[in-house]
């Protein structure tokens, strides 16, 4: 499992590179061409910290084929009260789930 960064959506803010607990994302280029790059795709823990911190939903998460990934992706849009999760597969929406940040887990 790992993440993919969409260059076109990335504005080079650098938040993801700062937050990754494994220091796996690198900022490359200058000015308008400054972009985040996943430098070590096979070292990702899958913690989603970068996905959640990105203000432009430029990062998506996927499962490697070796652990049953079938082209599905997960994205997150975070606000103070909730996280809106979007799971897609090959361009089609699988499911949208909203988790409250204030409510506890039922389990």
């Amino acid at each position: 499992m790992s993440i993919r960064i969409d260059r076109d959506k990335c504005d080079g803010c650098g938040l993801c590179a700062k937050i990754c607990p494994g220091n796996l994302i690198r900022m490359e280029g200058e000015g308008k061409n400054r972009k985040a790059v996943m430098a070590y795709p096979d070292e990702c823990w899958g913690c989603m910290s970068c996905v959640k911190v990105c203000p432009h939903q430029a990062i998506e998460y996927y499962l490697g084929e070796d652990i049953g990934g079938k082209g599905g992706t997960l994205q997150a849009k975070v606000n103070r009260k909730a996280i809106e999760w979007t799971a897609c597969q090959k361009g089609c929406l699988l499911e949208k789930i909203i988790t409250s940040r204030e409510a506890s887990n039922k389990y």
């Binding site: 499992m1 899958g46 990934g69 799971a87 699988l94 789930i97 988790t99 389990y107």
Partner: peptide, 21 residues
């Protein structure tokens, strides 16, 4: 649904795996 939510809050890969498989 409750399981999907609970896993998104700690191990999101499991929810994606369920949705995909």
């Amino acid at each position: 649904e409750d399981l999907y939510h609970a896993y998104l809050n700690m191990a999101p890969g499991q929810t994606l795996k369920w949705l995909e498989n």
